[in-house]
Design a protein around this nucleic acid. Sequence first.
RNA 1: GGAGGCUUCGCCUAGUCUGGUCUAUGGCGCCGCACUGCUAAUGCGGUUUGGGUCUUAAAGCCCAUCCCGGGUUCGAAUCCCGGAGCCUCCGCCA
Length: 420
Amino acid sequence: MIDLRLLRENPDLLRASQRARGESEATVDALLAADSDRREAVARFEALRAEQKQLGKQMPKASGAERDALLARTKELSQQVKEAESAASAADEALRRAQLAVPNLIEEGAPPGGEDDFVVLREVGARPDIANPRDHLEIGEALGAIDMERGAKVSGSRFYYLTGVGTLLQLGLLQLAMQQAVEYGFTPVIPPVLVKPESMEGTGFLGAHASEVYRLEADDLYLVGTSEVPLAAYHSGEILNLDQPQRYAGWSSCFRREAGSHGKDVRGILRVHQFDKVEMFSYVRPEEAHDEHQRLLAWEEEMLAKVEIPYRVIDVAAGDLGSSAARKFDCEAWVPSQGRYREVTSTSNCTTFQGRRLNIRYRDADGRTQTAATLNGTLATTRWLIPILENHQQPDGSVRVPKALQPFLGGRDVLEPAKR
RNA sequence: GGAGGCUUCGCCUAGUCUGGUCUAUGGCGCCGCACUGCUAAUGCGGUUUGGGUCUUAAAGCCCAUCCCGGGUUCGAAUCCCGGAGCCUCCGCCA
């Protein structure tokens, strides 16, 4: 949700942001109109209500003809107040809808344009020189690590089993991520993955992404697509102490319907309905958000370095940001079998957009309540197994284990294909 | 699944039966001031949150807010209906 004060004072800033996103400026003007409509309606209701209360106070003291006259007037007022009140709450609701229609103001510096207009900030690590690289599924099946066939048998397409070293690799990877997060002062969290509609709504996932989300109709609950949802809703409606950033690292399974991506990335575990993830989430003062975003990105890169995979960092273009983000950086790992980079992390600065929706505040130096800024970033996911397996494959069919993961695989530095 | 109880401005709490003087009581905590030559005691004042209006800004004034949503009434913390959360007991399943 956009700050209405900012909107009134500087609507052109928002119009420019909409242009950079390739979206309509008309929603900004609709919001301006809804805002002034609401204030008008509220003022009318409050004036009537004040009179009603004033007269109500005289009632117990009045008697006889005076009382009858009062009664006549207040009865009339009562009706008007009711009407004005429902007009005001209708205007309120209209304002809320208009506000939900406007995406976050982009951060200065975010590249304008659409999906393909990202800017590559840097490439890190040497791409391995592998002749005829096998893809992660071929490798994973040989190692007895990934079983797509049985996943499909039991649950359908885009489901899989991790088995043997696949299971150990994932648990190790996530544990490594959790260890790093704790080391930097994050509070480790295992959140609920089923959430109420308002939690889903508050994080902005029921807008354009609604068809991506699993819903349990019988219980009116949603399966989260990322622990960002329960981590953001965690402090909803609260006033936090943000003298220091509050940082949480959530470990959870994530569920995505992948509606509309039929036929895309169908092989292996690149695009699946269920996976696991460690996600960083920060609550900070707005003036801290930009720096915190850089820190989250640095922590993501530190993890990528630990698993020794080459990657690049991209500055995602405005039109590809999603409604909550003001700026977004993705890390894309090199995938030898595809000969290209694929997204493995994503960190967004949501500024106060999410905080306003979820009513998350803090006290500033003057003791006034202000809306908190929120940020999130990926520290590890199931998808990371792809670049790990592919970049570390050896000509003999074995896979080298990055040093940082070796303790989680019984100290092994190489994974050998399973004997059959 | 069944029965009952509870939910008040950070925490605890009065008020709900018997609707208006609730502009919500008191304690704790916190903040400020005063006093005392000493991290104490005492006194005084302040201390929910959101919105509107005015203003350079602040103050002021006004409205809402007693778990949430409806209803009754001239008027609801208080009465009625629906819902949520917590607790206790019973049943059932682990």
